[in-house]
Protein backbone atom coordinates (compact mmCIF):
# COMPACT_ATOMS: atom_id res chain seq x y z
CA UNK A 1 0.00 0.00 0.00
CA UNK A 2 1.68 3.26 -1.07
CA UNK A 3 1.52 6.25 1.22
CA UNK A 4 -0.69 8.43 -1.00
CA UNK A 5 -3.24 5.69 -1.16
CA UNK A 6 -3.10 5.31 2.58
CA UNK A 7 -3.53 9.05 3.02
CA UNK A 8 -6.55 9.09 0.74
CA UNK A 9 -8.07 6.18 2.57
CA UNK A 10 -7.60 7.87 5.92
CA UNK A 11 -9.08 11.11 4.66
CA UNK A 12 -12.07 9.22 3.38
CA UNK A 13 -12.64 7.55 6.69
CA UNK A 14 -12.10 10.73 8.65
CA UNK A 15 -14.48 12.77 6.56
CA UNK A 16 -16.94 9.92 6.91
CA UNK A 17 -16.90 10.35 10.68
CA UNK A 18 -17.29 14.11 10.36
CA UNK A 19 -20.28 13.54 8.08
CA UNK A 20 -21.84 11.30 10.70
CA UNK A 21 -21.58 14.12 13.23
CA UNK A 22 -22.78 16.78 10.82
CA UNK A 23 -25.77 14.78 9.60
CA UNK A 24 -26.72 14.02 13.17
CA UNK A 25 -26.54 17.68 14.10
CA UNK A 26 -28.55 18.68 11.03
CA UNK A 27 -31.33 16.22 11.74
CA UNK A 28 -31.46 17.16 15.43
CA UNK A 29 -31.74 20.83 14.48
CA UNK A 30 -34.46 20.02 11.98
CA UNK A 31 -36.43 18.18 14.64
CA UNK A 32 -35.96 21.12 16.99
CA UNK A 33 -37.31 23.50 14.36
CA UNK A 34 -40.40 21.43 13.79
CA UNK A 35 -41.18 21.91 17.46
CA UNK A 36 -40.50 25.64 17.13
CA UNK A 37 -37.77 25.25 19.67
CA UNK A 38 -34.64 27.27 20.12
CA UNK A 39 -31.13 26.69 21.39
CA UNK A 40 -30.25 28.43 24.64
CA UNK A 41 -28.41 31.65 23.98
CA UNK A 42 -29.33 31.76 20.30
CA UNK A 43 -32.28 33.55 18.75
CA UNK A 44 -34.80 31.38 16.88
CA UNK A 45 -33.36 32.20 13.51
CA UNK A 46 -30.09 30.76 14.82
CA UNK A 47 -31.54 27.28 14.63
CA UNK A 48 -32.67 27.89 11.05
CA UNK A 49 -29.28 29.17 9.94
CA UNK A 50 -27.31 26.51 11.77
CA UNK A 51 -29.44 23.77 10.22
CA UNK A 52 -28.83 25.21 6.78
CA UNK A 53 -25.10 25.92 7.11
CA UNK A 54 -24.25 22.60 8.70
CA UNK A 55 -26.05 20.77 5.92
CA UNK A 56 -24.09 22.70 3.31
CA UNK A 57 -20.90 21.92 5.24
CA UNK A 58 -21.92 18.29 5.17
CA UNK A 59 -22.11 18.52 1.36
CA UNK A 60 -18.46 19.56 1.26
CA UNK A 61 -17.38 16.80 3.57
CA UNK A 62 -19.38 14.14 1.80
CA UNK A 63 -17.86 15.21 -1.51
CA UNK A 64 -14.37 14.79 -0.11
CA UNK A 65 -15.40 11.50 1.51
CA UNK A 66 -16.67 10.07 -1.77
CA UNK A 67 -13.94 11.59 -3.94
CA UNK A 68 -11.10 10.27 -1.83
CA UNK A 69 -12.67 6.83 -1.74
CA UNK A 70 -12.89 6.85 -5.52
CA UNK A 71 -9.39 8.27 -5.99
CA UNK A 72 -7.80 5.79 -3.66
CA UNK A 73 -6.36 2.99 -5.79
CA UNK A 74 -6.14 0.33 -3.10
CA UNK A 75 -9.74 -0.68 -3.61
CA UNK A 76 -11.59 -0.30 -6.85
CA UNK A 77 -14.43 2.13 -6.35
CA UNK A 78 -15.57 3.78 -9.52
CA UNK A 79 -17.00 7.30 -9.66
CA UNK A 80 -20.28 5.90 -10.83
CA UNK A 81 -20.62 3.66 -7.82
CA UNK A 82 -20.49 6.70 -5.54
CA UNK A 83 -23.75 7.88 -6.99
CA UNK A 84 -25.38 4.89 -8.58
CA UNK A 85 -26.32 2.40 -5.88
CA UNK A 86 -25.07 -1.17 -5.83
CA UNK A 87 -22.84 -1.09 -8.94
CA UNK A 88 -19.55 -1.11 -7.07
CA UNK A 89 -17.29 -4.14 -7.27
CA UNK A 90 -16.01 -3.54 -3.77
CA UNK A 91 -18.64 -4.16 -1.10
CA UNK A 92 -21.53 -3.46 -3.47
CA UNK A 93 -24.22 -3.58 -0.81
CA UNK A 94 -22.73 -1.40 1.92
CA UNK A 95 -21.27 1.06 -0.52
CA UNK A 96 -24.53 1.05 -2.39
CA UNK A 97 -26.25 2.20 0.75
CA UNK A 98 -23.84 5.08 0.83
CA UNK A 99 -24.77 5.98 -2.71
CA UNK A 100 -28.47 5.83 -1.86
CA UNK A 101 -27.89 8.09 1.09
CA UNK A 102 -25.90 10.49 -1.05
CA UNK A 103 -28.64 10.61 -3.68
CA UNK A 104 -31.28 11.31 -1.08
CA UNK A 105 -29.11 14.02 0.41
CA UNK A 106 -28.69 15.67 -2.97
CA UNK A 107 -32.45 15.61 -3.49
CA UNK A 108 -33.19 17.09 -0.08
CA UNK A 109 -30.59 19.82 -0.31
CA UNK A 110 -31.16 20.72 -3.94
CA UNK A 111 -34.89 21.11 -3.41
CA UNK A 112 -34.25 23.19 -0.31
CA UNK A 113 -32.06 25.56 -2.26
CA UNK A 114 -34.78 26.19 -4.83
CA UNK A 115 -37.76 25.73 -2.55
CA UNK A 116 -39.36 29.09 -3.23
CA UNK A 117 -39.49 28.11 -6.88
CA UNK A 118 -40.89 24.61 -6.55
CA UNK A 119 -43.61 25.40 -4.05
CA UNK A 120 -44.19 24.36 -0.48
CA UNK A 121 -45.84 21.04 -1.06
CA UNK A 122 -43.17 19.57 -3.32
CA UNK A 123 -40.39 20.87 -1.10
CA UNK A 124 -41.92 19.37 2.04
CA UNK A 125 -42.58 16.02 0.40
CA UNK A 126 -38.95 15.67 -0.70
CA UNK A 127 -37.63 16.96 2.63
CA UNK A 128 -39.22 13.99 4.39
CA UNK A 129 -36.66 11.82 2.60
CA UNK A 130 -34.18 13.11 5.17
CA UNK A 131 -35.68 10.63 7.62
CA UNK A 132 -34.69 7.87 5.21
CA UNK A 133 -31.32 9.35 4.33
CA UNK A 134 -29.94 9.38 7.85
CA UNK A 135 -30.48 5.75 8.90
CA UNK A 136 -29.27 4.53 5.52
CA UNK A 137 -26.10 6.57 6.02
CA UNK A 138 -25.62 5.00 9.44
CA UNK A 139 -26.09 1.52 8.02
CA UNK A 140 -23.57 2.35 5.30
CA UNK A 141 -21.00 3.50 7.83
CA UNK A 142 -21.43 0.41 10.00
CA UNK A 143 -21.25 -2.02 7.14
CA UNK A 144 -18.55 -0.38 5.04
CA UNK A 145 -15.60 -0.99 7.26
CA UNK A 146 -14.29 -2.01 10.65
CA UNK A 147 -13.84 1.56 11.91
CA UNK A 148 -17.18 2.01 13.53
CA UNK A 149 -17.73 -1.61 14.38
CA UNK A 150 -15.78 -1.36 17.63
CA UNK A 151 -14.04 1.09 19.86
CA UNK A 152 -14.73 4.80 20.33
CA UNK A 153 -16.24 5.23 16.89
CA UNK A 154 -18.80 2.56 17.68
CA UNK A 155 -19.81 4.45 20.80
CA UNK A 156 -20.00 7.64 18.80
CA UNK A 157 -22.32 6.00 16.32
CA UNK A 158 -24.45 4.59 19.13
CA UNK A 159 -24.62 7.99 20.78
CA UNK A 160 -25.69 9.71 17.55
CA UNK A 161 -28.30 7.07 16.86
CA UNK A 162 -29.66 7.34 20.39
CA UNK A 163 -29.82 11.13 20.18
CA UNK A 164 -31.77 11.05 16.95
CA UNK A 165 -34.08 8.29 18.17
CA UNK A 166 -34.86 10.20 21.37
CA UNK A 167 -35.44 13.40 19.42
CA UNK A 168 -37.88 11.68 17.06
CA UNK A 169 -39.80 10.12 19.94
CA UNK A 170 -39.95 13.48 21.73
CA UNK A 171 -41.12 15.19 18.57
CA UNK A 172 -43.88 12.65 17.99
CA UNK A 173 -44.99 12.82 21.60
CA UNK A 174 -45.15 16.60 21.47
CA UNK A 175 -47.30 16.46 18.36
CA UNK A 176 -49.72 14.03 19.96
CA UNK A 177 -49.77 15.91 23.25
CA UNK A 178 -50.52 19.27 21.60
CA UNK A 179 -54.11 18.45 22.50
CA UNK A 180 -56.14 18.00 19.34
CA UNK A 181 -57.47 21.46 18.55
CA UNK A 182 -61.03 20.35 19.29
CA UNK A 183 -60.37 19.66 22.94
CA UNK A 184 -58.53 22.92 23.44
CA UNK A 185 -61.22 24.87 21.66
CA UNK A 186 -63.97 23.37 23.74
CA UNK A 187 -61.99 24.05 26.88
CA UNK A 188 -61.71 27.69 25.90
CA UNK A 189 -65.39 27.92 25.12
CA UNK A 190 -66.35 26.53 28.50
CA UNK A 191 -63.91 28.63 30.44
CA UNK A 192 -65.25 31.96 31.62
CA UNK A 193 -61.75 33.19 32.29
CA UNK A 194 -61.04 33.79 28.68
CA UNK A 195 -57.86 35.70 29.09
CA UNK A 196 -55.56 32.71 29.30
CA UNK A 197 -52.58 32.90 27.00
CA UNK A 198 -52.20 29.28 25.89
CA UNK A 199 -51.76 29.14 22.19
CA UNK A 200 -53.90 26.61 20.39
CA UNK A 201 -51.58 24.85 18.01
CA UNK A 202 -52.62 22.94 14.96
CA UNK A 203 -53.94 19.43 15.56
CA UNK A 204 -51.85 17.67 12.95
CA UNK A 205 -48.58 18.96 11.68
Amino acid sequence: MDSSSTALWYVSRATGVVCLLLFTAVILLGLLMSRQGKLPGLPKFGVVHLHRYLSLLAVSFITVHAATAVADSFVNISLASAIVPFVSKYEPFWLGLGAVSLDLMIAVIATSLIRSRIGRRTWRAVHWLAYACWPIAIAHSIGSGPDVQHGPLLWLTVACTAAVAIAIVARTAAALRAAPSDAQIRALLADSHTRNRTRIGAAHR
Binding site: S181, I185, L189, T194, R199
Partner: peptide, 22 residues
Amino acid sequence: LALESAGQCGPCRNGLPRIAGA
Protein backbone atom coordinates in the same frame (compact mmCIF):
# COMPACT_ATOMS: atom_id res chain seq x y z
CA LEU B 1 -68.98 29.61 14.43
CA ALA B 2 -65.92 28.96 16.60
CA LEU B 3 -66.51 25.21 16.48
CA GLU B 4 -66.94 25.40 12.72
CA SER B 5 -63.55 26.99 12.14
CA ALA B 6 -61.45 24.82 9.86
CA GLY B 7 -58.73 25.19 12.47
CA GLN B 8 -56.01 25.70 9.91
CA CYS B 9 -55.04 29.28 10.66
CA GLY B 10 -53.60 30.32 14.02
CA PRO B 11 -55.49 33.61 14.47
CA CYS B 12 -58.91 32.10 13.69
CA ARG B 13 -58.28 28.92 15.70
CA ASN B 14 -57.21 30.98 18.71
CA GLY B 15 -59.42 34.03 18.36
CA LEU B 16 -62.87 32.67 17.60
CA PRO B 17 -63.19 30.43 20.67
CA ARG B 18 -62.00 33.27 22.88
CA ILE B 19 -64.52 35.64 21.31
CA ALA B 20 -67.26 33.09 21.80
CA GLY B 21 -66.19 32.46 25.37
CA ALA B 22 -66.23 36.17 26.14
